[in-house]
Protein backbone atom coordinates (compact mmCIF):
# COMPACT_ATOMS: atom_id res chain seq x y z
CA UNK A 1 0.00 0.00 0.00
CA UNK A 2 2.76 2.40 1.01
CA UNK A 3 4.65 1.36 -2.11
CA UNK A 4 1.61 2.09 -4.25
CA UNK A 5 1.25 5.57 -2.80
CA UNK A 6 4.96 6.27 -3.15
CA UNK A 7 4.84 4.95 -6.73
CA UNK A 8 1.92 7.13 -7.75
CA UNK A 9 3.47 10.12 -6.00
CA UNK A 10 6.66 9.75 -8.04
CA UNK A 11 4.55 9.36 -11.18
CA UNK A 12 2.63 12.49 -10.24
CA UNK A 13 5.98 14.26 -9.79
CA UNK A 14 7.18 13.30 -13.27
CA UNK A 15 3.81 14.23 -14.74
CA UNK A 16 3.98 17.65 -13.09
CA UNK A 17 7.36 18.20 -14.77
CA UNK A 18 5.99 17.25 -18.18
CA UNK A 19 2.90 19.41 -17.75
CA UNK A 20 4.97 22.38 -16.60
CA UNK A 21 7.10 22.00 -19.70
CA UNK A 22 4.01 21.88 -21.91
CA UNK A 23 2.58 24.94 -20.19
CA UNK A 24 5.80 26.84 -20.76
CA UNK A 25 5.80 25.77 -24.39
CA UNK A 26 2.19 26.95 -24.82
CA UNK A 27 3.04 30.28 -23.20
CA UNK A 28 6.01 30.75 -25.54
CA UNK A 29 3.81 30.01 -28.51
CA UNK A 30 1.29 32.64 -27.35
CA UNK A 31 4.07 35.23 -26.98
CA UNK A 32 5.97 34.56 -30.22
CA UNK A 33 3.08 33.48 -32.39
CA UNK A 34 2.38 30.09 -33.86
CA UNK A 35 4.68 30.50 -36.87
CA UNK A 36 7.93 30.80 -34.89
CA UNK A 37 6.87 28.53 -32.07
CA UNK A 38 3.79 26.42 -32.72
CA UNK A 39 2.16 25.28 -29.48
CA UNK A 40 1.89 21.70 -28.31
CA UNK A 41 -1.55 21.36 -29.82
CA UNK A 42 -0.28 22.38 -33.27
CA UNK A 43 2.58 19.88 -32.97
CA UNK A 44 0.23 17.07 -32.02
CA UNK A 45 -2.10 18.06 -34.83
CA UNK A 46 0.79 17.85 -37.29
CA UNK A 47 1.77 14.52 -35.81
CA UNK A 48 -1.73 13.14 -36.34
CA UNK A 49 -1.62 14.35 -39.94
CA UNK A 50 1.66 12.56 -40.49
CA UNK A 51 0.23 9.41 -38.97
CA UNK A 52 -2.88 9.56 -41.10
CA UNK A 53 -1.09 9.73 -44.46
CA UNK A 54 1.27 6.84 -43.44
CA UNK A 55 4.40 8.99 -43.72
CA UNK A 56 5.02 8.57 -40.00
CA UNK A 57 5.29 4.79 -39.79
CA UNK A 58 7.62 4.30 -42.71
CA UNK A 59 9.86 7.09 -41.36
CA UNK A 60 9.85 5.64 -37.86
CA UNK A 61 10.74 2.23 -39.23
CA UNK A 62 13.59 3.57 -41.40
CA UNK A 63 15.09 5.64 -38.61
CA UNK A 64 14.74 2.89 -35.99
CA UNK A 65 16.36 0.37 -38.26
CA UNK A 66 19.33 2.62 -38.99
CA UNK A 67 19.80 3.75 -35.40
CA UNK A 68 19.61 0.21 -34.04
CA UNK A 69 21.95 -1.26 -36.69
CA UNK A 70 24.55 1.41 -36.02
CA UNK A 71 24.08 1.02 -32.29
CA UNK A 72 24.39 -2.78 -32.41
CA UNK A 73 27.52 -2.50 -34.51
CA UNK A 74 29.07 -0.03 -32.10
CA UNK A 75 28.07 -2.08 -29.04
CA UNK A 76 29.65 -5.20 -30.54
CA UNK A 77 32.87 -3.51 -31.65
CA UNK A 78 33.13 -1.43 -28.49
CA UNK A 79 32.73 -4.40 -26.16
CA UNK A 80 35.14 -6.65 -28.07
CA UNK A 81 37.88 -4.04 -28.38
CA UNK A 82 37.19 -2.56 -24.94
CA UNK A 83 37.64 -5.94 -23.28
CA UNK A 84 40.77 -6.54 -25.31
CA UNK A 85 42.13 -3.18 -24.17
CA UNK A 86 41.18 -3.94 -20.58
CA UNK A 87 42.80 -7.37 -20.48
CA UNK A 88 46.00 -6.50 -22.31
CA UNK A 89 47.83 -3.33 -21.31
CA UNK A 90 49.56 -3.16 -24.67
CA UNK A 91 46.28 -3.34 -26.58
CA UNK A 92 44.95 -0.66 -24.25
CA UNK A 93 47.81 1.69 -25.03
CA UNK A 94 47.34 1.13 -28.75
CA UNK A 95 43.56 1.50 -28.83
CA UNK A 96 43.03 4.34 -26.35
CA UNK A 97 44.42 7.12 -28.59
CA UNK A 98 42.38 5.77 -31.50
CA UNK A 99 39.27 6.04 -29.35
CA UNK A 100 40.21 9.57 -28.27
CA UNK A 101 40.68 10.65 -31.89
CA UNK A 102 37.30 9.16 -32.86
CA UNK A 103 35.70 10.94 -29.92
CA UNK A 104 37.19 14.25 -31.04
CA UNK A 105 35.82 14.14 -34.60
CA UNK A 106 32.40 15.84 -34.73
CA UNK A 107 29.52 13.70 -36.07
CA UNK A 108 28.85 16.23 -38.82
CA UNK A 109 32.36 15.64 -40.18
CA UNK A 110 31.71 11.91 -40.24
CA UNK A 111 28.53 12.51 -42.20
CA UNK A 112 30.46 14.41 -44.85
CA UNK A 113 33.02 11.61 -45.06
CA UNK A 114 30.34 8.94 -45.10
CA UNK A 115 28.55 10.71 -47.95
CA UNK A 116 31.79 10.77 -49.91
CA UNK A 117 32.58 7.13 -49.17
CA UNK A 118 29.18 5.45 -49.30
CA UNK A 119 27.03 7.98 -51.19
CA UNK A 120 23.54 8.82 -49.95
CA UNK A 121 21.55 6.05 -48.30
CA UNK A 122 21.23 3.99 -45.16
CA UNK A 123 24.85 2.93 -45.15
CA UNK A 124 26.10 6.48 -44.55
CA UNK A 125 23.75 6.91 -41.57
CA UNK A 126 24.60 3.53 -40.03
CA UNK A 127 28.31 4.11 -40.44
CA UNK A 128 28.12 7.56 -38.85
CA UNK A 129 26.16 6.23 -35.88
CA UNK A 130 28.56 3.35 -35.31
CA UNK A 131 31.70 5.43 -35.56
CA UNK A 132 30.47 8.21 -33.26
CA UNK A 133 29.17 5.91 -30.52
CA UNK A 134 31.92 3.30 -30.52
CA UNK A 135 34.26 5.32 -28.24
CA UNK A 136 31.53 5.41 -25.58
CA UNK A 137 30.95 1.65 -25.52
CA UNK A 138 34.68 1.05 -25.80
CA UNK A 139 35.40 3.13 -22.71
CA UNK A 140 32.65 1.36 -20.73
CA UNK A 141 33.92 -2.10 -21.62
CA UNK A 142 37.54 -1.18 -20.95
CA UNK A 143 36.67 0.26 -17.54
CA UNK A 144 34.63 -2.81 -16.67
CA UNK A 145 37.38 -5.20 -17.67
CA UNK A 146 39.98 -3.31 -15.70
CA UNK A 147 37.95 -3.25 -12.52
CA UNK A 148 37.49 -7.01 -12.18
CA UNK A 149 38.51 -7.91 -8.62
CA UNK A 150 42.17 -9.03 -8.68
CA UNK A 151 41.30 -11.60 -6.02
CA UNK A 152 38.97 -13.27 -8.50
CA UNK A 153 41.77 -13.23 -11.04
CA UNK A 154 44.04 -15.00 -8.56
CA UNK A 155 41.30 -17.53 -7.94
CA UNK A 156 41.14 -18.11 -11.69
CA UNK A 157 44.90 -18.70 -11.71
CA UNK A 158 44.65 -21.22 -8.89
CA UNK A 159 41.90 -23.19 -10.62
CA UNK A 160 43.74 -22.98 -13.94
CA UNK A 161 40.82 -21.38 -15.71
CA UNK A 162 41.24 -21.23 -19.49
CA UNK A 163 41.26 -17.92 -21.33
CA UNK A 164 37.93 -18.66 -22.96
CA UNK A 165 36.27 -19.35 -19.63
CA UNK A 166 37.89 -16.28 -18.12
CA UNK A 167 36.28 -14.14 -20.78
CA UNK A 168 32.83 -15.79 -20.53
CA UNK A 169 32.55 -16.47 -16.81
CA UNK A 170 34.76 -13.83 -15.23
CA UNK A 171 35.05 -10.76 -17.44
CA UNK A 172 31.83 -10.63 -19.48
CA UNK A 173 29.32 -10.74 -16.60
CA UNK A 174 31.32 -8.07 -14.78
CA UNK A 175 31.75 -5.94 -17.89
CA UNK A 176 28.03 -6.07 -18.65
CA UNK A 177 27.22 -4.08 -15.54
CA UNK A 178 29.73 -1.43 -16.53
CA UNK A 179 28.70 -1.35 -20.14
CA UNK A 180 24.97 -0.78 -19.64
CA UNK A 181 25.18 2.89 -18.62
CA UNK A 182 27.51 3.40 -21.57
CA UNK A 183 25.01 1.65 -23.85
CA UNK A 184 22.21 3.91 -22.65
CA UNK A 185 24.34 6.96 -23.48
CA UNK A 186 25.34 5.49 -26.83
CA UNK A 187 21.72 4.76 -27.69
CA UNK A 188 20.77 8.39 -27.09
CA UNK A 189 23.62 9.59 -29.28
CA UNK A 190 22.75 6.97 -31.91
CA UNK A 191 19.25 8.33 -32.31
CA UNK A 192 20.33 11.95 -32.59
CA UNK A 193 23.10 11.16 -35.04
CA UNK A 194 20.79 9.03 -37.17
CA UNK A 195 18.35 11.90 -37.53
CA UNK A 196 21.18 14.26 -38.40
CA UNK A 197 22.64 11.87 -40.95
CA UNK A 198 19.22 11.35 -42.52
CA UNK A 199 18.82 15.09 -42.88
CA UNK A 200 21.73 15.06 -45.33
CA UNK A 201 22.05 11.56 -46.63
CA UNK A 202 18.68 9.90 -47.16
CA UNK A 203 15.27 10.62 -48.57
CA UNK A 204 13.30 8.70 -45.98
CA UNK A 205 13.27 8.55 -42.21
CA UNK A 206 12.65 11.13 -39.51
CA UNK A 207 15.63 13.26 -40.53
CA UNK A 208 14.45 13.42 -44.14
CA UNK A 209 10.99 14.35 -42.87
CA UNK A 210 12.54 17.22 -40.95
CA UNK A 211 14.46 18.36 -44.01
CA UNK A 212 11.11 18.51 -45.82
CA UNK A 213 9.52 20.60 -43.07
CA UNK A 214 12.44 23.02 -43.35
CA UNK A 215 11.85 23.43 -47.07
CA UNK A 216 8.12 23.96 -46.46
CA UNK A 217 8.73 26.30 -43.50
CA UNK A 218 6.49 23.93 -41.53
CA UNK A 219 7.56 24.57 -37.93
CA UNK A 220 4.70 22.54 -36.47
CA UNK A 221 5.81 19.57 -38.57
CA UNK A 222 9.38 19.90 -37.28
CA UNK A 223 8.05 19.91 -33.74
CA UNK A 224 6.02 16.79 -34.50
CA UNK A 225 9.15 14.98 -35.71
CA UNK A 226 10.99 16.04 -32.56
CA UNK A 227 8.21 14.47 -30.49
CA UNK A 228 8.62 11.30 -32.52
CA UNK A 229 12.37 11.11 -31.89
CA UNK A 230 11.99 11.65 -28.15
CA UNK A 231 9.28 9.00 -27.96
CA UNK A 232 11.44 6.54 -29.89
CA UNK A 233 14.41 7.12 -27.63
CA UNK A 234 12.36 6.62 -24.46
CA UNK A 235 10.85 3.46 -25.89
CA UNK A 236 14.23 2.02 -26.80
CA UNK A 237 15.71 2.74 -23.39
CA UNK A 238 12.82 1.61 -21.21
CA UNK A 239 11.34 -0.96 -23.54
CA UNK A 240 14.58 -2.62 -24.62
CA UNK A 241 17.72 -1.79 -22.64
CA UNK A 242 16.35 -1.67 -19.08
CA UNK A 243 14.42 -4.94 -19.31
CA UNK A 244 17.46 -6.51 -20.97
CA UNK A 245 19.64 -5.40 -18.07
CA UNK A 246 17.23 -6.89 -15.56
CA UNK A 247 17.23 -10.15 -17.45
CA UNK A 248 21.00 -10.31 -17.75
CA UNK A 249 21.78 -9.47 -14.14
CA UNK A 250 19.50 -11.57 -11.97
CA UNK A 251 22.29 -11.80 -9.40
CA UNK A 252 21.96 -8.11 -8.66
CA UNK A 253 18.31 -7.75 -7.85
CA UNK A 254 17.25 -11.03 -6.26
CA UNK A 255 18.53 -9.84 -2.89
CA UNK A 256 16.40 -11.44 -0.24
CA UNK A 257 16.43 -9.15 2.79
CA UNK A 258 18.64 -11.18 5.15
CA UNK A 259 16.73 -14.35 4.33
CA UNK A 260 19.70 -16.72 4.55
CA UNK A 261 21.58 -16.79 7.81
Amino acid sequence: MGGLIRGSLSWAGSLTGVLLFAAFWEWGSLVYGSFLLPGPRDAIGALVELAVDDQLWSAVWATTWRAMSGFALSALLGIVFGMLAGISGTAGRVLEPVSTVLLGIPPIAWIVLALLWFGSGSMAAIYTVAVTTVPVTFAGAQMGTRTLDPRLREMADVYRVSLRMRVWDFYLPHVVSYVFPALVTALGVAWKVTVMAELFATDDGVGAGMALTRVNLDTAGAMAWILVVVALLLMAEHGLLRPLQKKMEPWRQSAKPSGAV
Binding site: R151, V158, Y159, F170, H174, W251
Partner: peptide, 15 residues
Protein backbone atom coordinates in the same frame (compact mmCIF):
# COMPACT_ATOMS: atom_id res chain seq x y z
CA UNK B 1 45.09 -31.50 -8.11
CA UNK B 2 45.51 -28.69 -5.60
CA UNK B 3 42.42 -27.16 -4.01
CA UNK B 4 42.70 -23.71 -2.49
CA UNK B 5 40.40 -21.91 -0.06
CA UNK B 6 41.25 -18.27 0.51
CA UNK B 7 40.57 -16.04 3.49
CA UNK B 8 37.58 -14.63 1.65
CA UNK B 9 35.28 -16.91 -0.35
CA UNK B 10 36.04 -15.42 -3.79
CA UNK B 11 32.91 -16.77 -5.40
CA UNK B 12 31.68 -15.43 -8.71
CA UNK B 13 28.78 -13.16 -7.70
CA UNK B 14 26.88 -13.92 -10.92
CA UNK B 15 26.97 -17.69 -10.47
Amino acid sequence: ATGVVFQDPRLLPWH
